[in-house]
């Protein structure tokens, strides 16, 4: 079966593959990534399902998911993947597509004033979740 994508979807696919440098079509749904993910129970879409939706051209579904903001790139998924797909990079690309439209996950000024944080946590969080 050939999947025919609209121009908009074709652009999104190219963008995700370019920013991540990863080929999600190589995923064959073994589920190792989701079995290893320490945050899987907090995700609305599991890591292997992210690949499945991307393969099916359901880019918006994944872009609107909570899961891409739950991932903090611990690299457990990519380490376990028999095809060495670095899903952390795919999640980063998906977040970047939102962030580059200034769709921050949160307001920096409000969140940073909620407590004392290690410098590394603040810089990392701002870089990963905000523009």
């Amino acid at each position: 079966m050939e999947l025919v994508l609209s121009k908009h979807k074709e652009d999104l696919r190219e963008k995700i593959m370019y920013i991540s440098g990863e080929d999600f079509y190589r995923c064959y749904q073994c589920g190792e990534c989701s079995a290893g993910c320490p945050a899987a129970d907090k995700m609305d879409i599991l890591p292997n399902q992210i690949n499945a939706y991307l393969q099916a051209g359901e880019f918006e579904k994944v872009l609107e998911s909570k899961a891409i903001w739950v991932c903090v790139a611990c690299f457990e998924c990519g380490t376990r993947c028999p095809h060495e797909i670095d899903i952390a990079k795919i999640n980063e690309a998906l977040r970047q597509i939102k962030i580059r439209k200034n769709m921050d996950l949160y307001n920096i000024w409000e969140v940073a004033s909620t407590g004392e944080f290690p410098t590394v946590a603040l810089v990392a969080s701002f870089r990963k979740f905000t523009a």
Partner: peptide, 22 residues
């Protein structure tokens, strides 16, 4: 058994409860 698992990392800034559960 959890020695290699993520502590929640920088999620601690906006989502401390998730980190607490990890």
């Amino acid at each position: 058994p959890y020695k290699n698992e993520c502590c929640g990392s920088y999620e601690t800034v906006h989502n401390p409860d998730q980190v607490a559960s990890m």
